[in-house]
Design a protein around this nucleic acid. Structure first.
Length: 316
DNA sequence: TAACCGTGGCT
DNA sequence: TAGCCAAGGTT
């Protein structure tokens, strides 16, 4: 039974795989960067950034040698900025601890910051051919539907994923095919069981409504932020670097202070995040800025959060 | 363990 | 359109 499913899935993948640049290589550095960029980020968003990356940082050593600010600038707009700082740190670890060679041992890969079990499984299988499963959103959905276990927890899903890849003839292609299936026929919103190569071996086929997971609704919190704009024709604009922890960690921005109450004025810009709506109220200030920061003639060259870019476009 | 961390595509 | 969700990891 499972071998039927394996053959069908791998055959289907051979005919339907999207051509993606990270599928054209087995270089660990390239696979690693793609996997981290793709964490919670859509393929379409990643594609141009992936290609740019290697023009800026052709090798792991090149990446390790630049400043964290340079890496954040390259990551600007991709979100979850901690990933950029982790990838930079990991590059330095690879340079110092592994002589610049990406480790080929699964446990060593797992020790690198920003790489968890799923990303390590992807890298290890794609680059070294190991039977280490990926368990991302796509694979979880496929497994839950195959087994009609919409409420399965991660422990159960990891066991199912490991068992499935153990039975597969080609672990690397298996991982790719599982993700491709979840991204296409077995999509979250509108599954197309008629197009699925595994529907004969799927307990939820053509009755996917039954297998829908019950998610709790995300609560969006409204917050109101004062953005202090110190500008000067000679010195430019005053920017501060945000702390590593918390939102937009390590990025640059005009000083921000949180307002306890919603002000009478209308926000100049509202920026939507997953769990928060940021209402931004710029305030031109004549006074000399205090605290950490620097005058910059232009924001070009500094990694700014998208919400701040949008605000500045409106007021400057 | 559950909260936290961004942005944009898609329906 | 407003909400869902995407090649998750860390603490």
């Amino acid at each position: 039974m499972s071998s039927d499913r394996c053959r069908a899935l791998l055959g289907w993948y051979g005919d339907n795989a999207r051509q993606l640049p990270w599928r054209e290589t087995t270089l660990p550095y390239h696979i690693w960067v793609s996997e981290v960029m793709l964490q919670q980020t859509q393929v379409k968003t990643v594609l141009p950034r992936y290609l740019e990356w290697f023009e800026l940082f052709p090798t792991v050593e090149a990446l390790a040698s630049v400043s964290t600010d340079d890496v954040l600038k390259a990551w600007e707009g991709l979100g979850y900025y901690r990933r950029a700082r982790f990838i930079h740190k990991a590059a330095q670890m690879i340079t110092s601890d592994f002589a610049g060679r990406f480790p080929n041992d699964f446990d060593d890969i797992m020790k690198l910051p920003g790489i968890g079990r799923s990303t390590a499984g992807a890298i290890s299988s794609f680059c070294f051919g190991t039977a280490t499963p990926v368990l991302d959103g796509n694979v979880k959905r496929v497994l839950k539907r195959w087994h009609a276990k919409p409420e399965a927890n991660d422990k159960t899903l990891w066991l199912l994923a490991q068992k499935a890849i153990n039975d597969s003839a080609d672990p690397a292609t298996w991982n790719q095919a599982m993700m491709e299936l979840g991204a296409s026929a077995c999509s979250a919103k509108s599954p197309k069981c008629g197009e699925c190569p595994t529907h004969e071996n799927c307990l939820s086929a053509f009755r996917v409504e039954v297998s829908k997971e019950i998610r709790k609704k995300v609560e969006v919190l409204d917050v109101h932020w004062r953005v202090h704009l110190h500008t000067c024709p000679k010195k430019g604009i005053w920017l501060t670097q945000r702390p590593d922890s918390g939102i937009w960690g390590g990025l640059w921005s005009p000083p921000i202070s949180e307002l306890a109450d919603q002000p009478d004025e209308q926000p100049t810009h509202t920026h939507q995040l997953t769990h928060r709506r940021l209402h931004l109220y710029p305030l031109q200030s004549e006074s000399e800025p205090n605290g950490e920061g620097r005058w910059v003639p232009s924001i070009e060259g500094y990694a700014l959060p998208t919400g701040i870019h949008r605000l500045l476009e409106k007021v400057i």
